Amino acid sequence: MLQTTDYTPFVTALAVFPDQEGVDTAFSVTKGTFDIGPEGIQVAEEQLPVVRADECWDEPGTSSIRYAAELGFTKPATDIVMTGHAYAPAERRGTSIDVGLMVGSRRKIIRVFGDRCWDRTLGIAHFTDPLPFAEMPLRYERAFGGRDQVSGRDGPQPRVYAANPIGHGFRVRGGEQALTGMPLPNLEDPKHLIDSPKDRPPPAGFGYIHPHWEPRRRYAGTYDEHWKKNRAPYLPADFDPRFNQAAHPDLIADGYLKGGEEVKIVNASKSGLLHFQLPRIRLSADFMIDGALHTRTPVWDTLVLEPDRHRFIAVWRASIPCDKQVLRVREVVVRCLDADIDLGIDLG
């Protein structure tokens, strides 16, 4: 039986499954939940469990991901994700506002509009003025994307915006969706603002990208007859590890976060600007395999910011190949070697 011994205040899970090369590998995931308070960063009293499968906001397939699966392959770099709402200051309600996120060298801005739709005047397409809003969900349902369909010999043929099938504003030439009255997205990239019904901007978001959406889908590899005969059930030879990155491409860090990075969140909290530094925490993971001890240093490969709740989540991951020794993997022991905040435990 796989066991975890966790000497940190966090939550650790252990699993064994083939890596992308088909080699049986032991993976450990340590997940820490932190409160963002007026006195700084503190370990949260409630430590969230490790997520074992993608959890959507609403019905799977028709809504965006709230929490992505965490017990999986190691990522090439840190995913930075933010969920929550945009909050319009009272003096700016009814106009657009910019929501900003900065984590170290990563910076992203999304322009948030009240509800609008397309209209026509003298045959010229334009959009209506945005309605006033106090808060707006920062979800891909509010970004550009969606579905349309065209008439074919065998009936309606669906057309889907591959980068965001659940958004709105997507319409194809000859499609059945009428332009007049069609909603525009609430979330836009200021560098790619919509000006024409023909525009196809990249979806603006801070959240997770579904595995079957672009750009992740292009990295999944080729699942054809050759794969069935020569590789299945393992991943195809052309699988790209970038598939494991679930954050928006603008929010994939250059390498792994180390701690100490500055974080700024603008217009995504009722309390105003959130400004803090990520804690520096150094972990070790000792894998017990066939009576031998193998020490690895976990990497920080996921950061989830939840400004609505004034908290963030850190996920560290470590792995070790254990081919032909799967049944002899017994335990992972996780310790905190160093930290620049009070973890409420003895370090070492």
Rank of each mutant, 00 (worst) to 15 (best):
C117S: 14
R116E: 10
I124S: 07
M82A: 06
T128W: 05
S105W: 05
A68N: 03
R106F: 05
T78W: 01
W57I: 00
E59R: 11
G94V: 09
T62W: 02
A53F: 08
F73R: 09
V99Q: 07
D79H: 08
P89R: 14
I65R: 07
I124D: 04
W118L: 14
C56E: 11
V112A: 08
G84N: 04
R52F: 13
D79F: 01
V103K: 10
V51K: 09
L71R: 11
G104Y: 02
I109V: 15
V51Q: 09
R107S: 12
R106W: 05
V99E: 06
A68S: 10
R106E: 12
V81E: 02
D54P: 00
G72P: 00
H126V: 09
V103D: 07
A77Y: 02
D115V: 14
I65H: 04
W118V: 15
E55T: 13
T74H: 08
W57E: 05
G94W: 03
T83V: 13
F127H: 14
K75R: 13
C56R: 10
K75S: 01
T83I: 14
Y87R: 00
I124G: 00
G123C: 01
S63W: 02
C117I: 12
G84E: 02
G72K: 09
G123H: 05
D119K: 12
P76Q: 03
D54R: 01
I97L: 05
K75H: 06
A53G: 00
A77M: 04
G72D: 12
P76L: 01
T62P: 00
G94Y: 03
T121K: 06
Y67Q: 07
T128E: 08
I124Q: 11
T74W: 00
G84I: 03
L71D: 12
K75Y: 02
L71E: 13
T95V: 05
W118P: 04
T128V: 09
V81L: 06
V103W: 08
T62E: 05
